[in-house]
Design a protein around this nucleic acid. Structure first.
Lengths: 170, 170
DNA sequence: TATTGTTATACTCTATAACTATA
DNA sequence: TATAGTTATAGAGTATAACAATA
């Protein structure tokens, strides 16, 4: 049983313990809520990305490759997926002419993945679309609330070892 | 180009504008980050739920049914999925003897879904496991940071019309 | 005719395991 | 023998569309 905003119980400070528990329901835990909102956020982002021929999962790769070419296993580790998934994502990005696979001459097992000019352009557009999506989701948030939310998420990503130093809160 | 913690650019206050943009990368947007962290969170929650024979998606249903029986379309709307998905989830919960489908005598098209005693027990255990998962993900957060994060997420869920009044921040 | 629930099907995202070519 | 990348396959998540029973 949850009280509406500004209810008597809240005003009198009863909301913080006892009858109205702070975290009584699964739907209020990060464990569950993050999963559901992740689907919502991905869906909205995907809808905006579709005209570019990209999906959300491609964007992290474009990001990671923006400053220097990387090997496929590096990418897999950085975005937290298994190597075979990266193969598939790169196949799609290569077909979209966004990346090139270049055989490493010093170790012919490796391939260095580099962004093409088109890939850089796609990355810039993707960032803009992600920002639009954020603005939609953060409508009504003030600057401090939005920053607190983003900082918290970045911190969890960091502790999960995702995106390396690219995703560091300022 | 992102500066490491405590870099010269940051120390001199240049980090807030110009060269080091606050939100230059896709991996720092909610649109992308929420999707990725949602997968991580769901994976961790699922690992803890597995011994119960439940997956994260079942938990919202157990939650919504905790206080009163509901029809399948109500559930579908509340958790933001298409009705055929609810059929599948309820088939699984019914097989686990966590819910019962009871034909509504006043409108024989509808089925009222009610929690069994076992379903209530599973729901309580699921909440406990979700909390454990939260504690793992929020390690190192102080109370205010954790609350700000949760409040922000609940607010987005609310604006997306999810979970009805059950998911209201205090 | 409209609505509730169901089935069939398909698409996306992911992972595991077995394979190749290089080292 | 170990490593980088690839392929094949399978599981979990989603949605759309066509259908039966009931209103």
């Amino acid at each position: 049983m949850r009280m509406p905003y500004g209810s008597a119980a809240e005003s009198f400070g009863q909301a913080s313990m006892g009858y109205v528990a702070t975290e009584e329901s699964v739907t209020q835990t990060l464990a569950f809520l993050l999963g559901k909102l992740g689907q919502v956020a991905s869906g909205r982002f995907a809808a905006r990305l579709a005209p570019l021929g990209l999906r959300p999962r491609h964007c992290a790769l474009l990001e990671l490759l923006a400053h220097a070419p990387k090997a496929q296993l590096e990418l897999a580790h950085a975005i937290g997926v298994t190597p075979s998934v990266v193969v598939d994502m790169l196949d799609e990005l290569e077909q979209a002419e966004a990346v090139r696979r270049v055989r490493d001459s010093t170790d012919r097992r490796r391939q260095l993945i580099e962004l093409t000019t088109k890939g850089r352009r796609l990355r810039r557009r993707a960032v803009a679309l992600a920002r639009e999506t954020d603005e939609e989701m953060l409508a009504g948030f003030d600057t401090a609330q939005a920053a607190a939310l983003r900082t918290g998420l970045l911190r969890i990503a960091d502790s999960a070892g995702l995106f390396g130093s690219v995703t560091r809160p300022s």
